[in-house]
Structures are given as C-alpha cells and as structure tokens.
C-alpha cells in the first residue's frame, strides 16, 4: 500500500510540475487578444462614464466617439456581435466590480430576439476563454460549460485549454471584427443582401411564449444591477429596415418596471429609410451610425 500511495503522490507532484508552464502561459494569454475590452475592464482601465451594451446592433449602430464629443462625457462601446443578453449581463457584472463605474448605460436591444435567443447570439465563450486566468471569468466559464471549478483552480492547463493555441496563433481581426478606439465596430461595407432588399409592410407579432427564462432572467438582472448601483439605464431601440415587431417594445418596457428610460429611434428621420445608411437590414453602416449616435447624444444631453 505504501509503495502504491508513494507512486501516486509522486505522479501527482509530477503533474503539478508539468502544469507550471501553463500557469505562466495563463498570464500571457490576455495579451494575445486584439479585442482587449474585457481585459481593460478586469484591469480597471476603462474609465468611461457612458457605456454601450448590446450585440452587433450596439457594436455597429452606435459610435461612442460622437456621443463623447456631443455630451462631453466619455463614452465607450461594449457591444459584442453575436452576444446574448446573458453575456452582456456578465460584462455588466465585471464593470460593476471594477473601480470605474459608469453613470449611464445604454442597452441596445435586439428586436425580437433579445429575450428569446437565437443560434446567432450566445454567450461569447470565445471572448471569455483567453481571460480564464481571472477567477471571475473562469468561474463564469465553469458555470456555463460544466467545467470543474475545483480542477481549474488546481490545473492551469485545464483552465486555459480552450485558448491555448492563441499563444502561437493569435487571432487576427477580420473586416467585421475591427474594434475602434471607442470600442465600436462600425463598418462602411454593404451587404449583398441589400441589393435584393424590399421593404415589408406587415410586421410580426412578438411571441412571449418563445422567450427563454435564461435570457429573461439575465435581462432582469441587468436592469436590477444598474438600479442597485444608481446607474442611469437607457434601453435603446435602434433603427432597422424591417418593421419593428408588434408588442416587443411594450414587453421590454413592462420588464423594466419603470427602472429604465426607453429610447426609440426617430422614426420620422428619413435617413433610416435610406439603404445608403445600412450595412444590411438590421445594421447601420458607419454613416448611419453617425446619424443615430448624434441623435442618441442629443437625447442624453437633453435629459
């Protein structure tokens, strides 16, 4: 028995020794990220007073730089294409734990998938994995994926395995993923889908029964988080070429229970009916984003 246990102990020690290089690698991994926004939050290097949250519609439709110029308060975008409200709520939690808390949060909502969730919006694990060296991020990854939290504490190799290859092949931004200094990801491109686009007159009706409890709970926590920290929360309905879903805005307003202001884009502005201001039907291009951001900034400045 003693021989068996000694061998087992030695084996365990050897495993820990071999894990040391992974522990060192864990510290370098965040630097391989071209999109360092999460890293900046974790390192308390994001002093912006106005933060923009949301998925691709936040990233592409809002130019925080224009908001900064008009309002005088530094704005920054934390919009992540393909990010569900679950991810956005996690990012908000990171922000609320940091030394710099914003005074205003703009949450750009996806009509109609905000509370429903689709294949294209999810928790951005890919953006989280390289930051697994931070306990708070690691714990969230474990929660989402079923990874053993205990084992991640013990073995760095297990903790960073998903992003390890980034050390020798750092990801490069493609034309959609260029993050500007203000955190936005606006684009001057035009999708081929616009060539065949035609305006639809009939709008769909929002189906509450399709909502996911996970997304709805995350949304409610998002609102509550802002309320608890005295942050002004503005729910933003951005422009789009498709008609808004009937009942969606009302549903969002109902869930905020008066704890957020609602901003709906100016439907009288003819620019939003001009295809030249869009990348594709749901997303503005940089020209459109500038118009919409000025409109938003005006709203912020007025109130």
């Amino acid at each position: 028995m003693r021989r068996f246990l000694t061998a087992l102990l030695l084996f365990g020690l050897l495993v820990l020794v071999l894990d040391l290089p992974f522990r060192w690698a864990m510290r370098d991994l965040p630097d391989t990220e071209y999109d360092d926004r999460l890293h900046r939050i974790l390192e308390d290097r994001l002093p912006a007073r106005i933060l923009v949250f949301g998925s691709s519609r936040a990233a592409r439709d809002v130019m925080p730089q224009r908001i900064t110029e008009i309002t005088g308060s530094e704005a920054f975008s934390l919009g992540y294409p393909g990010a569900s409200i679950t991810f956005q709520e996690f990012v908000l939690r990171l922000v609320l734990q940091s030394a710099h808390k914003p005074h205003t949060v703009l949450l750009v909502v996806d009509d109609p998938s905000e509370l429903i969730g689709t294949k294209t919006v999810d928790f951005r694990l890919d953006r989280s994995y390289p930051l697994a060296g931070y306990d708070v991020v690691n714990d969230e990854i474990c929660e989402r994926t079923g990874k053993s939290r205990l084992l991640t504490r013990l073995l760095a190799s297990y903790r960073i395995k998903e992003s390890l290859s980034q050390l020798w092949a750092p990801p490069k931004p493609d034309r959609f993923d260029t993050v500007f200094a203000d955190g936005s990801m606006t684009s001057m491109m035009r999708s081929a889908a616009l060539d065949t686009f035609s305006f639809q007159a009939a709008a769909r009706r929002y189906a509450i029964q399709h909502e996911s409890a996970m997304h709805r709970d995350a949304f409610l926590r998002f609102v509550q988080g802002c309320t608890d920290h005295g942050i002004r929360l503005i729910i933003v309905h951005p422009p789009g070429l498709d008609p808004p879903t009937i009942g969606f805005a009302e549903r969002i307003a109902e869930l905020t229970k008066g704890n957020a202001e609602i901003y709906h884009y100016d439907t009288t502005n003819q620019a939003y009916r001009d295809l030249g201001f869009y990348y594709d039907a749901p997303h503005l291009n940089r020209k459109g984003a500038r118009v919409f951001s000025e409109e938003l900034a005006g709203f912020l400045a007025r109130r």
């Binding site: 084996f11 050897l14 495993v15 071999l18 994926t145 079923g146 990874k147 073995l155 190799s157 297990y158 395995k161 998903e162 390890l164």
Partner: peptide
C-alpha cells in the same frame, strides 16, 4: 511508462471536450 501516462493524462486535460 510514466511518460506515456503523462502524455495520456495531458491529452485528457487539454483535449477533453468543454461541455457536459
């Protein structure tokens, strides 16, 4: 033998599928 065990163990640690 121990080298083989380590290779297997680290293959398990690094290549296991994240998810349940």
């Amino acid at each position: 033998r121990w080298t083989i065990y380590m290779i297997i163990l680290y293959t398990i640690i690094l290549l296991n599928h994240t998810g349940h």
